[in-house]
C-alpha cells in the first residue's frame, strides 16, 4: 500500500498507479488519488475538521466554489454537520474516518486508496461507510482499492479480490471464483423433532450433533440430500448455509490446494 502511494521506494520491481511511477512522481500522483489510513488520520490533529478540510482545499488547489459544493455534498452523505467544528483529536473513530474520507475525496480523485478503513469501527459506522463507498463507486465511478482484514467489507464491496499470503499472491479474481477456488462444502443444518443419533445418508457427512440440531456437510446435490433426510427422519426445520468468505480465505491461507487454473 505504501509503495502504491509513493511513500516507500520499492527495493526491486516496479509499480504503476493511474499511469505513474509512485515513488518518482509522488507529488503529481497525490493529486490523482485519495488516501485514507484506517489506523491514523491524515487530518490535522489539533485543528477543527472544517479547518482541516479547507486547508486540504488549498493544498490540492481546488477552486473555492467547487470545494463548497463538494463539501456540502459530502457533509450530507456522511452526516458531518454535527462535528464539523470539533477538533479532530476529539472525534470518535467513526467520525474521524468519515472526516478522513471527506478529505480524501474533496479533490475528486479517480482512485481512492483505503488501508483498513473499517478497523475498530462499530457496526453502524461500518455499514454507513460501506454504503457510502458503494455509492461513490456507482455514481462517480471512483475506483476503490481497499485492504482489509474484515471479510464483511470484501463480501459487501468487492468485485475483484486479491489475497496475499506472506507477501505472495494467493488469489486474484472475483468473489464467486474465490468461493469456487477452495472446496468448502455447503452445510445443511437440520433441526429434528427430537434428539437422535447422527444422521447417516448418502451424499452428506454429519459433522456435528447438538441435541436435536445436526450439521451435515454436503457432497451431493442439496435437494437430493434433503429428500433423503426427510424420508428417514422427522424434520422440524432445515437451513442451507453457504460457505462464508472467511472460511474460504482461511482455507486458502492454510494451503488447501486451490484450483490450478485460477492462480
Amino acid at each position: 500500500m505504501k509503495m502504491l502511494t509513493g511513500i516507500l521506494t520499492p527495493t526491486s520491481g516496479s509499480v504503476r498507479v493511474v499511469g505513474r511511477d509512485p515513488s518518482r512522481q509522488r507529488t503529481r500522483l497525490a493529486r490523482d488519488i485519495g488516501v485514507v489510513f484506517g489506523q491514523r488520520t491524515t487530518l490535522w490533529w489539533d485543528l477543527p475538521l472544517r479547518d482541516s478540510l479547507s486547508l486540504t482545499r488549498h493544498l490540492y488547489r481546488v477552486p473555492a466554489d467547487v470545494h463548497a459544493e463538494r463539501l456540502a455534498e459530502l457533509t450530507e452523505l456522511l452526516e458531518l454537520e454535527p462535528f464539523l467544528d470539533t477538533p479532530v483529536r476529539q472525534l470518535s473513530l467513526g467520525q474521524r474516518m468519515r472526516g478522513d474520507l471527506t478529505a480524501a475525496l474533496l479533490h475528486a480523485p479517480p482512485l481512492l486508496v483505503l488501508d483498513e478503513p473499517t478497523i475498530g469501527l462499530d457496526v453502524v459506522s461500518k455499514s454507513t461507510i460501506r454504503e457510502f463507498l458503494l455509492r461513490i463507486n456507482r455514481e462517480r465511478g471512483t475506483t476503490i482499492l481497499i485492504t482489509t482484514h474484515d471479510l464483511g467489507d470484501v463480501e459487501r464491496l468487492c468485485d475483484r479480490v486479491i489475497v496475499i499470503d506472506k507477501g505472495r499472491l494467493a488469489f486474484d479474481g472475483g468473489l464467486p471464483e474465490l468461493r469456487a477456488t477452495v472446496p468448502t462444502p455447503r452445510v445443511l443444518v437440520v433441526d429434528l423433532a427430537a434428539p437422535a443419533p447422527a444422521i447417516e445418508v448418502e451424499g452428506a457427512v454429519t459433522v456435528r450433533v447438538d441435541g436435536p440440531r445436526q450439521w451435515l456437510e454436503l457432497a451431493d446435490n442439496p435437494a437430493r440430500v434433503i429428500s433423503r433426510v426427510t424420508a428417514g427422519h422427522e424434520v422440524a426445520d432445515l437451513t442451507l448455509r453457504e460457505p462464508d468468505i472467511e472460511g474460504v480465505v482461511s482455507a486458502l491461507y492454510r494451503g488447501a490446494a486451490p484450483n490450478e487454473s485460477r492462480v
Binding site: 509513493g6 511513500i7 507529488t27 489510513f37 491514523r40
Partner: peptide
C-alpha cells in the same frame, strides 16, 4: 513514529 509523516507524503505538497 506517529505516522503523520506518511500523511504528508500522500499530499501534493513537498
Amino acid at each position: 513514529r506517529a505516522g503523520s509523516f506518511d500523511a504528508m507524503l500522500v499530499r501534493p505538497v513537498s
